[in-house]
């Protein structure tokens, strides 16, 4: 029963999963990185404290983060249809993935930036650096290692979410596991997909940590 069709389907599943994960992570950072910077900068010990902006962003982030992903996925179906024209398949899954990823990434980035030594920020201010220069040339540079570690964690999380999207026809390995393993009791296929998911997470984790430690000049 293990046919070449199944093999090629699984290979396709791997690609679909990679496609969803990487595109979502990239788009997530497109919005999440500025969001995280804004959170860190407007917080009360930040460069430009602004309680109103901080509180508004903080509440929005908390709301999105507290909706379980599976429910968010279903809630967003009309929106997804509006954006990509359909609500199933890999490309459609990217929409809820990005929306779930942005606040998650925002928090990661915020905490990475808050780890930067305030003394270095003060030194930059004493040299006449503007707030924008401090963000660009000090905060993002000094927080680099922590940001990469954060993105490694993010990729793992989004990969997990993408598999979850399989329940509602999201495509990728999760989809295969649900369709074959759950609905057709083909446990072997399910095990293979699970093992592949584990392998993918392992690879991303290892590569991410390797790059992070390679780029860290503090030791």
């Amino acid at each position: 029963m293990w046919t070449s069709e199944i093999t090629s389907m699984i290979i396709e599943g791997v690609w679909a999963t990679l496609y969803m994960t990487l595109v979502s992570t990239f788009m997530g950072y497109l919005f999440g990185l500025p969001l995280g910077v804004l959170l860190a900068v407007t917080d009360k010990d930040g460069l430009k404290p602004n309680p109103v902006v901080y509180k508004v962003l903080d509440v929005i982030v908390n709301i999105v983060r507290s909706v379980p992903f599976l429910i968010l996925l279903i809630l967003l179906i009309p929106f997804t249809r509006l954006v990509v024209g359909q609500s199933y398949g890999s490309t459609a899954t990217i929409v809820p993935l990005v929306i779930a990823a942005v606040p998650f990434i925002g928090r990661m980035v915020e905490s990475s930036i808050k780890e930067v030594d305030p003394g270095v920020i003060e030194a930059a201010r004493s040299m006449g650096a503007s707030d924008f220069q401090i963000v660009w040339k000090v905060l993002l540079v000094e927080a680099r290692t922590s940001l990469i570690v954060g993105s490694t964690i993010t990729i793992g999380t989004i990969l997990g979410y993408s598999a979850m999207a399989g329940c509602v026809g999201g495509g990728g390995l999760g989809d295969i596991a649900v369709r074959y393993g759950y609905y057709r009791y083909q446990t072997d296929i399910m095990i293979v997909t699970v093992v592949l998911l584990i392998l993918l997470v392992q690879i991303f984790q290892t590569v991410g940590m390797f790059i992070a430690s390679k780029l860290d000049k503090r030791k």
């Binding site: 030594d117 003394g119 270095v120 003060e122 030194a123 040299m127 540079v141 000094e142």
Partner: peptide, 17 residues
Amino acid sequence: REDIGMIFQHFNLLMQK
């Protein structure tokens, strides 16, 4: 501020540069 340099107890160098 460009006319006024400053040094600190804990040096405050960019550790990644």
